[in-house]
């Protein structure tokens, strides 16, 4: 447990020394979201309809942006190797890294989303639901993404390959996350969507570190 906290502290410290990387992904999110009204037109009804989907797709893409760096630096400088021979179980260290990744790249998206939702004229309760959905969904994105990042460690064309592997797996999160807000706007119950999203998160908390650990050991060999 101490080791888990140590990894989180370490990765946060590293992110702090290199602020630009985390900020780039965040600005990417803002810019992508702002491009849609420019491409589609400023009709408030239309924007309200596509808003949740656009914000979620932008969140997927900007999560993806930082993913290939998740393990790549530690892989290149030998730290990942040290983690694999450490007495601390690799699963704990991996879980810490994923959590730190979410704190740096996922949480800011969640905090920023309601403000960007205003650009799409989303009503207040929809904004709340969007934020709640992203709060449950972005850790899920980090965990699924970590599997892809570990599988593509050190490969040619890592970034594009990572997207190809990870994006289809992101579809359920996208459907339930954006669907919750759309259901709310349409006057339906949104609780079911969020419960399913939370169930997927619970499942991935259990399985993702296993898959990531296996993938890292394969990549190190």
């Amino acid at each position: 447990m101490n080791a888990l906290l140590a990894v989180i502290r370490r990765d946060l410290l590293l992110a702090l020394r290199r602020k630009s990387e985390a900020l780039t992904a965040l600005f990417f999110f803002v810019i992508v979201v702002s491009l849609f009204p420019l491409g589609i037109g400023p009709d408030p009804n239309l924007l309200r309809k596509i808003g949740p989907g656009v914000l979620w797709v932008a969140a997927l893409l900007s999560t993806l942006l930082g993913l290939n760096r998740l393990f790549a630096d530690d892989f290149a400088d030998g730290t990942l190797e040290q983690m694999a021979v450490s007495p601390t179980p690799l699963g704990w260290l991996v879980a810490g890294k994923i959590l730190a990744h979410w704190l740096v790249s996922g949480l800011p998206l969640v905090l920023l989303a309601p403000m960007l939702g205003l650009q799409f004229d989303l009503p207040v309760d929809a904004l709340g639901l969007l934020t709640l959905g992203l709060l449950i969904g972005t850790p899920l994105l980090s965990m699924i993404g970590a599997i892809g990042a570990a599988l593509t460690l050190g490969l040619r064309g890592g970034g594009a390959l990572l997207s190809l592997i990870v994006l289809p797996l992101y579809v359920p999160a996208l459907i339930f996350g954006a669907g919750a807000v759309e259901a709310q706007i349409a006057g339906l119950q949104a609780g079911g969507h969020l419960s399913l999203l939370a169930a997927m998160l619970a499942l991935s908390v259990f399985f993702a570190p296993l898959a990531v650990t296996a993938a890292i050991r394969i990549a190190l060999e």
């Binding site: 599997i147 579809v171 359920p172 459907i175 997927m200 898959a211």
Partner: peptide, 17 residues
């Protein structure tokens, strides 16, 4: 590993769609 991750996800994807 990828095939196994995929096969776990296929029912979830199918259901969500």
């Amino acid at each position: 590993v990828l095939a196994l991750v995929g096969v776990v996800n296929i029912p979830v994807i199918y259901f969500s769609v």
